[in-house]
Amino acid sequence: MIAEDSALLREGLVRLLVEEGHEVPAAFGDAASLLEEMRERQPDVVVLDIRMPPTHTDEGLRAALEIRERRPGVGVLVLSQHIEHTYAAQLLAAGADRVGYLLKDRVAQVDEFLDALERIRAGGAAIDPEVVRRLLVRTTHTDPLARLTPRERSVLEALAEGRTNTAIAHQLHISLSAVEKNLNAVFDKLDLKQGPDYNRRVLAVLRYLES
């Protein structure tokens, strides 16, 4: 299902997804209508714009957070016109399962957009690479991330995009054991101890987004 107030983008998304073999049972111009429809049915994934009627502030984000809380089995992909890292952090606060945050420009890159949707449907995450790169530039020398080596930062950047260890190894052209070694170093330097009650991968991404 889709919630996007721009009729042109909304219809374009519907057409693209249908042409790629997906079913789009409903598409709306506001978040409230989407939430109402979801009382009757549960889609695999919902795609929402952050800013929608009536106030055009954060209606889509609030709807996404509600879906994450009440329907954890539904994937949520939020689209944004601009980079708003606090929103990305809020989305990931409940975990990095079935969630995504992409800039709207990414929709034009069809293969990347469809890949993100598939990752979310399969239970993973998809964070826009530009969001990750922009946040990387924002880090300062007083930030804990400044303690990471360039390779460790590259691994964390790929992790923040929602990639698995295998995908990170393929992207960076390193071995799987090297990915695991660098991730463990990241966890240690960010003081993220192993424990049964939380996911260090999620905590590392949150620390990255909040820094």
Rank of each mutant, 00 (worst) to 15 (best):
Q42A: 15
Q42F: 06
Q42K: 14
P43C: 07
D44G: 13
V45A: 14
V46A: 06
V46Y: 02
V46T: 07
V47S: 11
V47T: 11
L48W: 01
L48I: 02
D49E: 07
I50T: 10
I50E: 00
I50V: 15
I50C: 07
R51T: 05
R51F: 00
R51Q: 10
M52N: 07
P53V: 10
H56V: 10
T57K: 15
T57M: 12
T57W: 09
D58H: 12
D58P: 02
D58F: 12
E59H: 08
E59A: 08
E59P: 08
E59L: 07
G60L: 09
G60A: 11
G60T: 08
L61V: 10
L61I: 09
R62D: 11
R62I: 03
A63N: 07
A63T: 08
A63S: 14
A63K: 06
A64L: 04
A64W: 00
A64P: 04
L65G: 08
E66N: 10
E66M: 12
R68D: 08
E69W: 03
E69R: 15
R70K: 15
R70C: 09
R71N: 10
R71F: 08
R71M: 11
P72Y: 00
P72W: 00
P72V: 02
P72N: 08
P72D: 03
G73R: 13
G73V: 09
V74D: 04
V74M: 10
G75I: 05
V76K: 08
V76F: 07
L77P: 11
V78G: 06
V78K: 03
V78L: 14
S80K: 07
S80V: 06
S80F: 06
S80P: 06
Q81K: 13
Q81T: 14
H82V: 12
H82S: 14
I83K: 01
I83M: 04
I83D: 11
E84F: 10
E84K: 14
E84C: 11
E84R: 15
T86F: 12
Y87K: 05
Y87N: 13
Y87D: 11
A88E: 00
A89L: 07
A89Y: 03
Q90Y: 01
L91E: 01
L91W: 01
L91M: 14
L91I: 06
L92R: 13
L92V: 15
A93G: 03
A94D: 10
A96S: 15
A96I: 00
D97F: 05
R98G: 09
R98E: 03
V99R: 02
Y101I: 09
Y101W: 06
Y101E: 04
L103P: 07
L103I: 05
K104T: 09
K104Y: 02
K104C: 08
D105Q: 14
D105A: 14
V107G: 06
V107W: 00
V107P: 04
A108V: 03
A108F: 11
A108I: 02
A108Q: 12
Q109F: 04
V110G: 04
V110A: 11
D111W: 01
E112W: 02
E112T: 03
E112K: 12
E112Q: 13
E112A: 15
L114D: 09
L114M: 14
L114P: 07
L117Y: 09
L117Q: 09
E118D: 13
E118I: 02
